[in-house]
């Protein structure tokens, strides 16, 4: 479903190149649920932006549903739903209901399918109380549900979420998680999310990717991740350990198989 082949992205900042992502390769199959971890500034959001056609990679190649997002952006947009936890893609001034109408027009979803889907989502995510509220007046949790709904109205085969549980209270968080799990198991939607919340990883993801300094530092199941540190370490300890021993930006990329703690699924 998603194929990244040695993708890299650098930015020129005051004449110097900042390598946000370098040489990142991974494959996500249809129906998978993958979580993406990594310290701040690791390159997670940049990776998501390359998958969704917001940023063109400066090296390598990525395809989503067989299409290159930087060349066939609009075709990819139909296949993919995108949620940015940090920033809404809805329209500040409009009530949630109107925002959904605009989404309907942009994706050319037919009226009947749209109604069905919106009713279903309203029911599942409890949007009923604030459909008429302008987006700027929504609480973070309400807005997040709105964003998730907007990303799914066109029934995409892949859903990509950048920190979808950021700032949510415990109840909202578990509702969002339950919703995403059902989406993955019942509709078979492929889900890729980034998070700093290990609860998301433990409760949702069968597979974890750890990005560090723009490189893939681990790719495997949650159990395999835990097994990288001997003994009865908690998942927090394991991840903290991995973040701390992260290589300096300029060291050559570790090759799979050479470095014992790195497991590949």
């Amino acid at each position: 479903m998603i194929d990244a082949d040695r993708i890299g992205r650098s930015f020129r900042v005051r004449g110097r190149a900042v390598h946000a992502v370098r040489d990142l390769s991974f494959h996500v199959g249809a129906g998978e649920f993958v979580g993406c971890l990594g310290p701040n500034g690791a390159g997670k959001s940049t990776t998501i932006k390359m998958l969704t056609g917001i940023l063109a990679p400066t090296s390598g190649r990525v395809t989503v549903a067989g299409l290159d997002p930087s060349r066939r952006r609009t075709a990819v947009a139909r296949e993919i739903g995108v949620v940015f936890g940090q920033r809404t893609t809805l329209w500040w001034d409009l009530p949630l209901r109107d925002s959904f109408q605009l989404v309907r027009l942009l994706y050319k979803v037919d009226r009947v399918r749209f109604r069905e889907r919106l009713d279903e989502m309203t029911d599942r995510l409890g949007l009923g109380d604030f459909l008429g509220t302008p987006v700027r007046q929504l609480s973070l949790g309400q807005r997040m549900r709105g964003d998730i709904t907007a990303a799914l109205l066109h029934d995409p085969s892949v859903l990509v979420l950048d920190e979808p549980t950021i700032g949510l209270d415990i109840v909202s968080k578990s509702e969002v998680r339950a919703f995403l799990r059902e989406l993955n198991t019942e509709r078979g939607t492929t889900v890729l999310l980034t998070t700093h919340d290990l609860g998301d990883i433990e409760r949702l993801c069968r597979r974890v990717m750890l990005i560090d300094h723009g490189r893939l530092a681990f790719d495997g199941t949650v159990e395999e991740l835990r097994a990288t540190v001997p003994g009865e370490a908690s998942i927090e300890d394991v991840v903290a350990h991995l973040y701390l021993r992260s290589p300096a930006p300029r060291t050559p990329p570790p090759r799979p198989g050479e470095d014992p703690p790195i497991a590949t699924a």
Binding site: T52, I54, A77, V82, R87, T88, W91, L106, Y107
Partner: peptide, 19 residues
């Protein structure tokens, strides 16, 4: 603008139609 790039419609049309 990020939000416009994830929609399956030309960005010029979206910017022109926005608000």
């Amino acid at each position: 603008f990020d939000g416009m790039l994830i929609r399956p419609v030309g960005t010029f049309v979206q910017v022109a139609a926005d608000r």
